[in-house]
């Protein structure tokens, strides 16, 4: 590499070297493997998915299966994709409704209690996601504490089957699981917000509500979007939340279908193609986000 190169060699070898190597090895190679398997044909004897590393060997049969499966009229993946989309939109909306006031309060109003509140917000990250979810499985089981509390309060006459495959349980569990990941980036955005805009808004005669609606909220859109991206992308791949709190076929999400193909069938390459398709879809969503935030950033600067 010449000295004039865009990225000087010393930097490449020292500061950013490990990071780039990591990304090349575990992200680029990993994603390429996924595509190579999706585009490969199974071993004729062992039926094991065999990656097609060279583009010359690519076969699009698995992708054709996935695309026809996503056909809204009768495709076997359409229903589960539509359902995932609806659950994720509902869960994301729930995260905004619950997370925004929390982040707003901590960033704008909390004073002496701020340190404590921040610790509380970080606390969920110290416990594994799976464990937090398993805890709810115990609480919500037919003879768990939730049913016991509700029946003592005479709110229910007999134990409710919370884990019996209710869509509402799945959506609530998704909100519970992912809301901490939404609050933190939003808090960071609100914290960084230039208070002079708010003062200017007040000086120009806007009340608290008008200031919030016309100044704070628009300025916090990048934070909301960042939070949404952070939670929505993993929710598309999340299948364990669903598996733990429901497990019913009628609530299964696209992540469950991918897992089914990987774990229980001889057509793992279809699972890989489904995962690749999801990845392409999510990259498109992410690209839209990057464009929007870039535009929003320019608008703010202007």
């Amino acid at each position: 590499m010449s000295r004039r190169s865009f990225y000087p060699l010393p930097y490449l070898l020292t500061t950013s070297g490990p990071g780039l190597a990591w990304i090349a090895l575990f992200v680029v190679l990993g994603v390429y493997s996924l595509f190579a398997i999706s585009l490969g044909t199974p071993d004729p004897i062992l039926l094991t998915p065999t990656p097609a590393w060279s583009p010359l060997d690519w076969s699009f049969a698995n992708f054709r299966d996935v695309i026809s499966g996503l056909n809204p009229s009768g495709g076997i993946f359409w229903e589960v994709f539509r359902r995932s989309f609806v659950y994720i939109v509902l869960a994301a909306a729930g995260c905004v409704l619950i997370g925004y006031p929390v982040a707003y309060y901590v960033a704008m109003y909390a004073k002496r209690s701020k340190a404590l509140l921040l610790v509380l917000l970080i606390l969920p990250f110290l416990v594994s996601y799976m464990l937090r979810m398993l805890a709810w499985v115990g609480l919500l089981s037919p003879d768990g504490y939730v049913n016991e509390a509700l029946s003592r309060l005479h709110l229910v006459s007999q134990p409710q089957d919370w884990l019996g495959g209710r869509p509402s349980t799945v959506v609530l569990a998704l909100i519970y699981g992912w809301v901490p990941y939404f609050i933190l980036p939003l808090y960071a955005a609100l914290e960084r917000l230039d208070r002079r805009y708010l003062e200017a808004s007040a000086d120009l005669g806007a009340g608290r509500v008008r200031t919030f609606i016309f100044t704070t909220l628009p300025l916090s859109v990048p934070g909301i979007l960042a939070g949404l991206v952070l939670i929505a992308l993993p929710m598309f791949g999340d299948y364990y939340t669903n598996q733990l709190v429901s497990g019913a076929a009628t609530t299964s999400m696209i992540g469950n279908t991918i897992n089914t193909y990987i774990a229980s069938t001889q057509q793992r390459a279809i699972g890989a193609a489904l995962a690749s398709t999801l990845l392409i879809f999510l990259i498109a969503v992410l690209a839209y986000y990057v464009r929007t935030t870039a535009r929003a950033a320019r608008a703010v600067v202007r």
Binding site: G30, I37, G237, R268
Partner: peptide, 24 residues
């Protein structure tokens, strides 16, 4: 979250089967 895209699992799982073509 790190492995939330279940695709990651398929890579790991499928990598194990990569060398089967010899036997075939």
């Amino acid at each position: 979250g790190a492995l939330a895209l279940s695709g990651a699992a398929s890579i790991l799982a499928a990598c194990g089967g990569g060398g089967s073509s010899d036997g075939g």
